[in-house]
């Protein structure tokens, strides 16, 4: 996942009485777990919400190349360099499938890209945090991909066919990435004093931003009800966050690392861990553009796009010349 605070219709889920006959038939198909395909009729709000969600997810994959790419040239061994390159290449590939899924809803990749570059569309808040030491690359795989998987696994069952199929491919690769991330953390946590320090430092910095990936708590999540009725969103934010915490706490213990939360206690009644909420004011600051790396991330994407204009234009012009030559024959 990498979709947070995706704006839906702005209202709660529409009741059956308020639905038009077409909307009712549509909702019936969703309730019967039928997939909606690009040529099928769909409510405008469904289309728009999906474009926002898939677009945000795609942008996250693209911007997500940057914090990891930050370490490709400094990866400590040839094998680690290859694994990281392959991973970042996978992320770009995910971006490609997701943009293609969004295109089936009637918006082009270039239009989506321009909305990202102008700041009108968001990407996941997590990629506005820096990767400062090599263990961050492990922690991104372990925590960030781990959190993404929590959300993406249920999205394999999402109602929109192209999105759900993209998610099946993406999930396979993400779980591989998560294992690779954990493998880096193991090496670091079992390594020298300095390596262990790097691992703990990475966990300290990335723990709360990872919890933020699920979006604000359900009480404050205004867009969820309609998305859930449409099966664009399958689980609530808090439900997924709890699952993530429960999965991650024993993994951190196994690594011998300390999760930076003094309130972390096992709650027998709920069969899960109680934990501290992240600082939501920080989350909203990051969304507003005031995270540690927002400016750099957008600058990097804009620079790549602007510097690449002549390349895109050149290749297009050449393709046109070739078509014209073929037509003249």
């Amino acid at each position: 996942m990498y979709a947070q605070m995706v704006q839906s219709t702005g209202q709660g889920a529409k009741s059956r009485e308020d639905m038009s006959p077409e909307e009712r038939a549509f909702q019936d198909r969703i309730d019967a777990d039928q997939k909606i395909e690009p040529r099928d009729w769909m409510p405008d709000g469904y289309r728009k919400t999906l474009i926002r969600q898939i677009g945000q997810h795609a942008h996250s994959e693209i911007v997500g190349q940057l914090p990891e790419g930050n370490w490709i040239t400094r990866a400590p061994t040839l094998e680690r360099k290859m694994i990281l390159l392959a991973k970042v290449q996978d992320e770009a590939g995910h971006g490609l499938y997701l943009y293609a899924a969004a295109e089936t809803l009637g918006i082009s990749r270039d239009e989506l890209t321009e909305q990202l570059l102008s700041g009108r569309m968001k990407y996941s808040s997590i990629f506005n945090y820096p990767t400062l030491n090599w263990a961050d690359i492990g922690a991104v795989g372990w925590l960030v991909d781990g959190a993404a998987i929590m959300n993406q696994v249920p999205l394999q069952r999402t109602s929109y066919g192209p999105y759900s199929r993209a998610m099946v491919r993406i999930c396979k690769e993400e779980s591989f990435h998560q294992r690779q991330g954990y493998d880096i953390m193991m090496k670091m946590a079992q390594g020298t004093v300095a390596q262990k320090k790097m691992a703990q430092d990475a966990l300290n910095r990335l723990w709360y931003p990872s919890l933020m990936m699920f979006g604000p708590s359900d009480a404050d999540s205004v867009h969820s009800a309609q998305s859930m009725a449409w099966k664009i969103k399958i689980n609530s934010n808090d439900e997924l966050r709890q699952k993530f915490v429960d999965q991650t706490v024993p993994q951190a213990k196994y690594l011998g690392l300390t999760i930076p939360d003094d309130n972390l206690v096992w709650n027998e009644d709920k069969g899960g861990w109680d934990y501290s909420d992240p600082d939501w004011s920080e989350f909203f600051d990051v969304l507003k553009g005031n995270g540690p790396c927002n400016t750099e991330r957008l600058e990097a994407r804009n620079k790549a796009w602007d510097d690449g204009a002549w390349v895109r234009d050149g290749l297009m012009a050449h393709a046109q010349k070739k078509r014209a030559a073929a037509a003249a024959e």
Binding site: I62, G69, Q89, A92, L96, A300, W305, V311, R312
Partner: peptide
């Protein structure tokens, strides 16, 4: 590999990463 994430178009990001990967 220095290009990773900075290419003119997504397909080139993928292709450059792939080339770097083969070379390493």
């Amino acid at each position: 590999s220095e290009w990773c994430g900075h290419a003119p178009v997504l397909e080139e990001d993928i292709a450059l990463a792939n080339t770097a990967l083969d070379l390493i």
